[in-house]
Amino acid sequence: MSIQHFRVALIPFFAAFCLPVFAHPETLVKVKDAEDQLGARVGYIELDLNSGKILESFRPEERFPMMSTFKVLLCGAVLSRVDAGQEQLGRRIHYSQNDLVEYSPVTEKHLTDGMTVRELCSAAITMSDNTAANLLLTTIGGPKELTAFLHNMGDHVTRLDRWEPELNEAIPNDERDTTMPAAMATTLRKLLTGELLTLASRQQLIDWMEADKVAGPLLRSALPAGWFIADKSGAGERGSRGIIAALGPDGKPSRIVVIYTTGSQATMDERNRQIAEIGASLIKHW
């Protein structure tokens, strides 16, 4: 067993022997301040990774656009098919120029040779490549099948209805392509620590998230040296922004954090800054 596999296998073990965790309302004060600064709703939840206990939450059962955070769930569904012998990570998928959609920095470079399922998941999570996500959605049967996968996990809230990039439209009061912070946090925890996926697939999923290259201005910008984070960000229309993450000190994750916002007129930089400040408060009061 590799060191990384050992780390993920012992996530519940280490967490069980940690000192009790206590909620700190100071972080919620910052979440509410972010709402004021952005002029928009902000949803927040913080779960203990081992027990699933909610440590703090704000608007945990209000719907927010998922945006690209759905790509972690998508690759979880792909990995479940791999575990069941219905898919192979090494299978190569070929596609054409007509398949390319807006923001496809990886797939646009491989029109000639195609990409493997493993490479597509890596591109979808680490670079948020939209064509990679659409190609992977095709392998599982489309958005409705991802929703069905989530329902089978016990998540009857999260739903995907459309493809990239239309799913980022974020129309107010439109339930399409949305989740709730509580539902997303619980589902992410199941994917990373539950028995739904094999140990190898859980490790692969967290490795992809740990290698995320496009979430630097968010929670990662607030992390002290030595902290662990595996995350996936999302951005959408109407001032929408979000991030889902597993993080913790001492090089291992111990909490799940989900943050979503929508309806702001603020710039992307300002949305990023507010999420980073929430992260800084979380870490300060850990």
Rank of each mutant, 00 (worst) to 15 (best):
L192W: 03
L100R: 13
A246H: 04
L100H: 07
Y103V: 06
D113L: 03
T178S: 05
K284E: 06
L219I: 05
Q86H: 10
L120R: 00
Q204A: 03
G90Y: 13
L247C: 10
L196C: 14
L192E: 06
E195W: 03
E108I: 12
I229N: 08
A170G: 02
G85Y: 05
D212S: 14
V72Y: 01
T126M: 09
Q86V: 10
E102G: 04
E277W: 04
A235W: 06
A133W: 00
P105N: 07
E102N: 04
E169N: 05
N98F: 10
A280T: 15
L188Q: 03
T27H: 14
K190L: 12
I171A: 15
L219V: 05
E166D: 13
D48T: 02
G39K: 03
Y260D: 01
G90D: 07
G76Q: 01
V31P: 01
A245G: 07
D33L: 02
G52P: 09
E270L: 03
L196T: 12
N50Y: 06
L223D: 03
Y103K: 02
S104D: 06
V31I: 12
E270D: 05
A124H: 00
G251V: 13
E87P: 10
G251P: 11
I283Y: 02
R63N: 12
S240A: 12
W227C: 03
R189V: 05
T138D: 05
G154M: 15
S221T: 11
W163M: 13
E87I: 03
T139E: 14
L188W: 10
D113A: 04
Q265T: 06
M115E: 09
D113Y: 09
S51F: 15
E195C: 15
V257S: 13
E277K: 11
T267D: 03
Q203S: 03
I275D: 00
G142F: 14
M184D: 00
F64T: 02
N168K: 07
Q88T: 11
L191D: 01
L136R: 00
E35I: 13
G154E: 13
T198A: 04
S122V: 06
D207T: 04
R91T: 13
A222M: 12
F70Y: 13
R220I: 10
V117H: 06
G52Y: 11
M180E: 03
I229D: 01
P224K: 10
A246F: 07
P224S: 12
D83G: 06
G279A: 05
M180L: 04
T116N: 15
A170T: 02
I243W: 14
P165F: 13
L205G: 01
P105E: 02
R176Y: 13
L89W: 08
L219M: 12
E237A: 08
L205N: 01
T27M: 02
D269Y: 02
I140G: 07
P25I: 12
T126P: 07
C121S: 04
A34F: 10
E102F: 02
I125H: 03
M67K: 03
P143T: 14
F228M: 13
A34T: 05
L282M: 08
A200S: 04
A84E: 05
R241C: 15
A280C: 11
T178V: 04
G39T: 04
T107A: 05
D155I: 02
A34S: 11
G251R: 11
Q97K: 14
R271S: 09
E56D: 10
K109H: 08
E270H: 02
V78G: 10
H151N: 11
T262E: 10
V78M: 14
T198K: 06
V82G: 08
E35F: 14
Q265V: 07
L136M: 09
R189P: 04
E277Y: 13
F64Y: 10
T139V: 09
D99Q: 05
K32V: 15
L282I: 02
I275T: 11
L146E: 13
S201W: 08
L150W: 05
L89P: 13
K53F: 11
V214L: 10
